[in-house]
Amino acid sequence: MTLALRLVDLAKTFPVGKRLFGKPKGKVRAVHPVTLDVERGETLGIVGESGCGKSTLARMLVGLLEPTQGHVEIEGAALDTADPALFGKRIQYVFQDPISSLNPRKTIRQIMEAPLRRLHGMKATERQARIREIFDSVNLREEFLDRYPHEFSGGQAQRIGIARALAAQASILVLDEPVSALDVSVQAQVLNLLADLKGEYGLTYLFISHDLAVVEAVCDRIAVLYFGAVVELGRAEDVFRAPLHPYTRLLAESAPVVGRPLTAPEAKETELPDPLNPPSGCAFRTRCPRATERCAAEVPTLETAKSNHQKAACFHPLSD
């Protein structure tokens, strides 16, 4: 196994109610310490409800947020968050909203040239040759280079965003909801493109999405986040076929399926935990039908429950 990416106790805490003088009123732990290994050439899916910490985790990986603790290693080398160039050359971010992620004041050519010039110091002739190569890879015409972002559809803009990430020659792409803003037919085109690029360039993907059907189709492994912590980790087919954690099953049952009536898996008065006053023990216990006194007294770790290639942070896994 060759590791492309390793997260070592990576965590992020934000101050809340910051005052002009003195300490903040409180703190919110957006991401609890996460330790993960991602193999080279793998697609790791990261799923969970809105606000569970997916995007915060992704932004720490690419250096857009500095972690409160822990660090990131790429191919065995720890990256210094003070040097963005190290991140840019090895890992790149593809944003959820393709239009707003592109500078409206610059042409596509200027946008594409920026990483080639600043990260790799390429001369003009080298830059143009590299841009033509990348645009051909993402099935875009060269004439698009002299247009502005507002002139493109969402699918075209997302292809440009992917091309910009490839221009940095990074080996790892963090895909934050890369198809959620696109029509279904365009989603399929972009997903097929990502699969082709992965084989062509030997890429490793971290794929963040709310769409469980997409995640199951494109990912090798799944990491399920809840309240800032990884609560289940395993191969995609295992996690969706036989989840260990009750929260994973809740996510699966919440996803709409053609031909199945829309029913809420939880009571409508169910509330998420308060981040300023988190519950003791397991954060999911207030929503879990299997919770016991132990769940309130202790915090389960990812090693608490195991089944073949799966792990779950649960004292009462569904396999029991």
Rank of each mutant, 00 (worst) to 15 (best):
D220N: 15
Q189R: 15
V239C: 12
L203G: 02
V94L: 10
K12Y: 12
S319L: 09
F240V: 09
C52I: 05
T301I: 08
A296Q: 13
E151H: 13
L57Q: 08
A114S: 11
V8Y: 03
V31E: 05
L20T: 12
I134K: 01
D274F: 10
P98C: 03
L203Y: 02
A213K: 13
R141I: 01
L166H: 04
I222Y: 09
V138G: 02
I222N: 10
E237V: 12
R130Q: 11
Q189V: 11
L119G: 00
R285K: 13
F284D: 05
G53V: 04
M60I: 05
E75W: 03
P246F: 13
K311L: 14
R260C: 05
P115M: 06
L318V: 09
L102F: 08
V190R: 07
L262Q: 07
M1T: 10
E133Y: 01
H309Q: 15
L119R: 00
P246N: 11
R249N: 13
E303P: 03
C288L: 13
A167K: 00
E151N: 08
L10Q: 04
E143T: 12
C314G: 09
I134T: 08
R260V: 14
D97A: 10
I108E: 01
A213H: 06
R118A: 04
L57M: 15
G88T: 07
E75M: 11
I162N: 02
